[in-house]
Every structure is written in C-alpha cells, then in structure tokens.
Design a protein around this nucleic acid. Structure first.
Lengths: 242, 242, 242, 242
DNA sequence: GATGAATGAGCGTTCATTCAT
DNA sequence: GATGAATGAACGCTCATTCAT
C-alpha cells in the first residue's frame, strides 16, 4: 500500500527510503499524492493522515509546506487547472481556422482527461461540492475556458450571431450559451469515456464536433430552431443544412 | 395535511407543537429539510443535528425513520431524481415528433431546475463528490435519462446513424455519445442559468435545440464532421495528438 | 483512577455509575473536576481528556455544556471568584467598625483559601499567566476586592489621608496603594499558610492586622514614613503609636 | 563578552551574518530572547521556534546549549532571579540601620521591576503557573528573599518579637509571617505600578514603608492587634468564624 | 412515540525534539 | 559549528450514533 511502483522517473536513486529531499520536489510529491487521494475520496472524506502516508512524508511536513487541508486542496486545484488550461491552450493555436482550433482544443482536452484521470475527477467532481474559497478557484478556471470558447463561437459566427443587445450582460448572449453547451457536452463526454473505456481523443473530439459544429455553421447563416413547424415565416432548419 | 383522526388521548397538552404526525408525512418533512441542508452545505459538512433541527424532529426520529446519514442522503437523491425524471418524462409525450419530444423534455428539465434549485444542486453538485454507494444511485438516474435521449436520437436518426456493430457495447455507439453530449450540455446550461439569472425555460431549451438539433438533422442525412479533408493544407490531427 | 471516593453528598444513589444526570448537576461536576485539574497542572498543561475523565463524563459532554477549553477555564474562574467574593463580602458586614470589618474579611478570606485550596490556586497562580480574556476576568475580581479595601482604608482614614490631588487617577492615591499592599500581603500569607501547614484563619488574620492596622492608625493621624531621621520637622512615628 | 582567541580558520566567509560567536555570549543571547518571549506568551504558549528566531540562532543550537524547553525556562528563571536578588542585596548594605536597609532594598526592588519589566513578569506571573521543577526554582529564590527580610524583621524587633518556640518550624514564627506580608505587599505594589503607570521607585518604597514600618515599630514595643478587647460591645470573632 | 443525555472514534493541527548534511 | 528537513505524539474539537427515560 505504501509508495507503490512509481518508477522514480526524475531522481533514479535506488534508495528505498528517499530522505532529505529538497523542498520543491517534496511539494510536488505531496500534491501528487493529494490529488490521488482527493480524487478517490473527495475533500471531506480524505484525511490528512492518508495523504501524508501516500506522500510518504509525515503530517507535519504536509502542514509546514502546504499550510492546511483547505490550502492543500486549493493548491491541487490550482495546479491541475493550470495544467489543463495549459494543455488545451497550447493545442488551440490562434493562427488556425476557427473550427480546427476548437477541434484541437477538444482533442487536447480529452487527451488530458485520459492521461490525468485523477486531476480531472478532482476538478470536475470534487472541487464543485466544496465551500466558497475553493469552488471559486475552479469556477474561475472554467470561466476562462468558457470565455475562450465564447470567443471562438463569436468569431466563427462573424456577424451573423446577433451582438448582445444593449444593456444585456455579456455572459448572457447566445454565444455564451453555445459555449456553455459545448463545454458541458465536453465534460459529459469526458466522463463517458472514462466510464466506458478509452478511445482515441481525436475520436471523441470528432464525435462532439459532429454534433456541435455541423449544427453551429448553419446557425451562423441564420438558422434558428423553431419549436413548432407551424410558424411558416421562419425558414425550416432543413433548408440551411449544407 | 391529513388530519389525524386518532382520539386525542395524550394530546391534551396545551402545547401548540404539532405532535403525532403520521409517519409518511414526517418522512417527507425530514427529506425536505435534508435536501435543503445538503444542498447548502454538501454531504459531509451537513450535520445530522442541523437536519434534525430543520426537520423539527429529534435526532433519534431521524435515525429511526431514515436509518443513517448515508441512507438519508440516498433517500434524498432517490426522491429528487425520481421527481426530476417524472417531470421530464411527463413532458416528453411518446406520441410527439422526435424533435418536439426532446424540446419539451428539455423545457421541463430547465423548468424543474429553476423551480427546485436545491434538488438540482444536490443531484448535480453534491451527490457526485461522494463515495460509491450514493454516487451509483445518482449515476443510475442519469443513465436512465441518457438512455431515453439515446433512444430519441436513434429514432430521429432512423437508419442513418449506424446501428451498433455486433458485439459493441450498447453504450458506446454514436447515438449514446450524442445523448451524453446533449445531457451534458443541458446540465451546463442549467447551471449557467442558475448563475446568471433566470430566463424562461422555453428560451433555454430553444438555445440548446438550436445547437444540437440543427446539427443533428444534417448528420442524420449523412453529414459528418471531418477535420481535414476540406482543408488539404492542414496537417493530419494525428500529428498534433499528444 | 476513575471516579474515586467522592462521597456523593447530594444524591445518595448507590449506583456506582451515575448516569442520566440533569444538566445543571453535571455542569457543577465538570467545573469541580476542571478546577481540580487546572489547579494541579495549569491551564495549558491540563488536557480536556484529563478533565473529562476526572468529571466522569465524556469529552463531547464537556464541549456541549461548556463550549471550549477557554470557556471552561473562564467558567471556573468566574465561579470560584464569585464564591470567594461572596464569602469575603458576607463576612465584612457594612455595619461594623472599620478595622473589625477588615479583620473579618481577612478571616473569611483565609478560611476560604484553606477550605478551597484548589480554587485559590487556580485564581491566584494559574489564571494570571493566561491570555487576555481570562486574565481580565480574574483581574476584575481582584479589582473588586481591592476597591472594597480602598474604601475601608479611606473610611478609616477619615480625612487624614489626603484626598487624591486634582487630576490624579483615582487608583493612584495613597489609599489605593495601601489597599494593594494589604491584598498582596494577604495573598502572600495565604500561600504561606498553604505551604507551611494550617493554622486557624483568625490567627492568620490577626498576624496581618498586626502589621497593617497598627501601622495604619498612626498614619491616620498624620504619621509618615520618612527615609532619613534628619528631617526633624516631621514627627517620629513612635510618637503617634498608641 | 569574552573574545574567543581561537584563530579564525573557518571564519573567512564574507557573509555579514555574525558567526562564530563565543558560546557564553550566544547563551546570553538566547536567554535574552527567551525571557522576552516567555514574558509575552507564557511558558506553554511560547514556542521554541519563536525563541530560536528571536535569538537569531537555529533550533538545534538552542537545544545544544540549553538542553530542553524546560531547562531553558529554568535557566531564564535562575538568571533573572539572581539578577533581582543581586540588585536588592547590593542595595541593602548590611551596615545600615534596619529600617533604612529595608527601605533601600524595596527601592532597589521597585527599580528593578520598572527596569526589567519582562524579567519580573516571567518570575512573578509565568513561573508560578508551571509544573513542579520550575516552580521550585522560583520558590527557592523567593524564599531567599523572604528569609533575608525575616532576619531584618527579627533584628529590628530585637527581643520584642518572641523567638520561635522550641520545636517550632523556623518559617512559622511571627517574624516569618511579617516578612511574607512585606514581600507579598511589595509584589502587589510592583504589579500595581506596572499597571497604573510609573512612579519613582523611592516613592513606591515610601508608600510601603509607611504601611509596614510605622506599624512594625510599635509592635516591637509590644503592641498587638487585638480584635475585640477595646470594643466590649463587639461579639467574639470565634462566633463568626465559618 | 419521542427525546434529552451521553459517547467512541477520528480529524485537523501543532509542538518539542532530532537527524543528516 | 551550524542548519534545513523531518517526525512521534498529543491536543482541542466535532460528529454520527445510541441509550434510558
């Protein structure tokens, strides 16, 4: 149960009990362990004892370096959120065509989730059920992503998506709604893949793009979903499908 | 609400305290309070003391009727999930056209979330951060919804969406992915509306339909999102996969 | 070690494990034990576990009834200070002649200390080394005593002790100084008796009165201690001795 | 203070940090810091970390030189008690007249307290709330002072204060009681001056002498405080003893 | 049926103390 | 000689849970 087969990638010392490790490294060690435990048990059910043991350090070290359980959790959230955003941002090069940018971002996202299962679980499932200080941290990270997607959507739409009406909150426009839907769908698919077994991230990204992008483009040319066919003065969506 | 006809043998006390309430009603009272408290504090941070006080019953009653904190939480989840599914199922009458069925289901969903804010928060945010027994409960409810949507998608697609290949897990087909995306998008929009202020559920449903349904129908006639073929000067996605 | 021979004076139930005791009684039980432990170990060294065990209740009860370690300590201080002041105040009937009033007060004080050894130790030794909230409590009690003595001194002095000069702080007058000295001397004698073995409180009071009162009366007729005999215009104390 | 003559073999580092300080000096440094911290926080609340930091040495040094927290505290007590006794003893030159000797000792005492506020607080307030080993140290110092005062008192009394009866403990005689009262009164006045603002030590000493010495001298000629004889209409104290 | 009284168990946190360098 | 790194052991406090009335 203790310090299982982590292959000691960085410092290949053969010593079974790594002692006297410099601070920065120990901190990462602790964060690694904390993410593992938090993702498995959630914030409250995780005990500092367990995290300390998983980190292979004593509890006082944990407190000396990370301050408190809440700060430790926040540090996990911050690190993992930064990693996720970094990975996605890296992939979505600004020079690309809009759709391609989104597709690559999504691919990077699904790849990240597959590779960092625990990070994702902590961010998406555990961090949202906490008290204010932490939940705001993760909400901010999510907002950052949603805002980026909103920009993409708006850019893709050129001028065809109506500019927010005067006085309307900027986060309430149609583009924002679409971005929220996209991000939410991505979240759900990420969880779905985690549950049902792996598939190439490109495949998952394609699946999502097939739903949203094909649907997005017609809208950009004015298509709207109309509840009831009886309204004849609105063009049927079918017409604008390409 | 039901007047208890038992002769007031012991109720001759002048205390205005409502006593001798039938069990079923008491249970609902407790569940109501529990949902309130759980949604506000989360599972762990909520204390049985607080719930008992909010229920206006003593703690031993709570335990007598609901068994334990975990069972109480599960009961909350079960009741709220049932209510949600009931509401959505009610709205999506089987006789309707597929798209309309989905639209009405979504509308009912957004209406439910607006009206039962706490139920939704417990189901969507709190219940997912728990240990196995409870999380499975809510996962089952979600699966039920996703399956229904999957059926809709598949029906809408007629034959154009490829039937799951033989031996393929039924939850891995394209229709299932689309359903997951839809449900995830709906979740996200529900949270978005909760955060940014109310709007008519029909409007939110329309927003989502505009994204997914307009996109879905072309696919039903064979459209697929292809990353590169249209842009031959673009590198294959494989290269950028990480 | 547990629940030793406390003779169950109040409720002579023969049950060896007194259960289901009404709250008020339990609270006194806890305070009794806490005073014992605090007097033996001091505030910090005393552990709530130890106090709980000495009270013959579990720790949660301690917290439920008394709130926190600090509040518990404060409650001890308050109760014991009140008892002490009550005892002394009772003895020093206002109608008596001034000197007699003081003598009776001192007698009651020494009797109290002899009878409530622990209370006294907590008040005098332990409570003064704490952080602000508690130290102020005990300081206030002491001030109350000193003020009473100051009044006595001033009354005894009639007008012969100079009224505080204009603008002088009321607690800086000569009478206040004398009162402080008296109380300090009483404290010291109380400790001395505790250390060296009991003697009748009347005897200890007489000892102190012999020092201060005989000295006080000449002063009341103008005697002052002069450092150097060379000042011939001030009467030698000897003259005013009666 | 003693310059260490060892050749500066390793001290060739250009660091401005004061290194290679001789042991004796370092020790004083630590004691200084410790007294500061102990007087501010009390024994338990003071942490070795804080003391080490205030001493500008590392914690292992602290332990190497002073052994343990308790030993460190005891060392503080010892040093400060020695300083106090030295100061008082210096002032009370044996050649002087008895009263003058006492007056000068008291003056020195009040001067010391004013000048070494922290030392006094540690000795008088903090050290008394500890467990056995330390409390004995400070009790011994106090005993030394009391004994000196007892001698003074006895000397002043010539033969008029009855010599301890045969077999009586030497610390139980009337002279001892008087000495205790004097020291206790001095303690109280010291605290009083600390609380209410400074005044010349001579003034405080005069105040105390006015109370005790004027009263003492009549006693030396046989005066005793008698509770009732002078007032025949007053009940005997015995009756009111509780 | 209903509840005030009571607790076992465990968690977050800190501190005096000591290696290994 | 001097120190950053590390820990065993408690302590204050709380909570889900259950008697005894």
């Amino acid at each position: 149960m203790r310090s299982d087969a982590r292959p000691a990638a960085t410092s290949a010392t053969g010593t079974p009990k790594a002692k006297r490790v410099p601070r920065a490294q120990r901190e990462q060690q602790m964060l690694d362990a904390a993410v593992q435990v938090f993702s498995r048990c959630g914030y409250h059910a995780a005990s500092m004892d367990e995290i300390a043991e998983a980190s292979d350090v004593s509890k006082p070290m944990l407190y000396l370096y990370l301050g408190s359980k809440e700060e430790l959790f926040a540090a996990c959230i911050r690190r993992e959120a930064a990693r996720l955003i970094e990975a996605v941002g890296q992939a979505a090069e600004p020079g690309l065509e809009t759709g391609e940018q989104l597709r690559r971002g999504l691919t990077a996202f699904f790849a990240f989730v597959a590779e960092h299962r625990e990070s994702w679980i902590v961010l998406y499932q555990q961090a949202r059920a906490q008290g204010e200080p932490v939940v705001e941290e993760v909400a901010a990270a999510r907002r950052q992503v949603v805002d980026a997607v909103t920009l993409l959507v708006r850019r893709a739409a050129l001028d065809s998506v109506p500019t927010p009406r005067l006085g309307e909150r900027p986060d309430r426009g149609e583009a924002a709604a679409v971005a929220q839907a996209i991000v939410g769908a991505a979240d759900a698919l990420a969880g779905w893949v985690l549950d049902t077994g792996p598939e190439p991230p490109e495949e998952t990204a394609r699946r999502l793009m097939s739903v949203i992008w094909i649907g997005l483009e017609p809208r950009l040319h004015g298509a709207r979903y109309a509840a009831d066919p009886p309204t004849p003065d609105e063009p049927t969506p079918d017409e604008s499908a390409r």
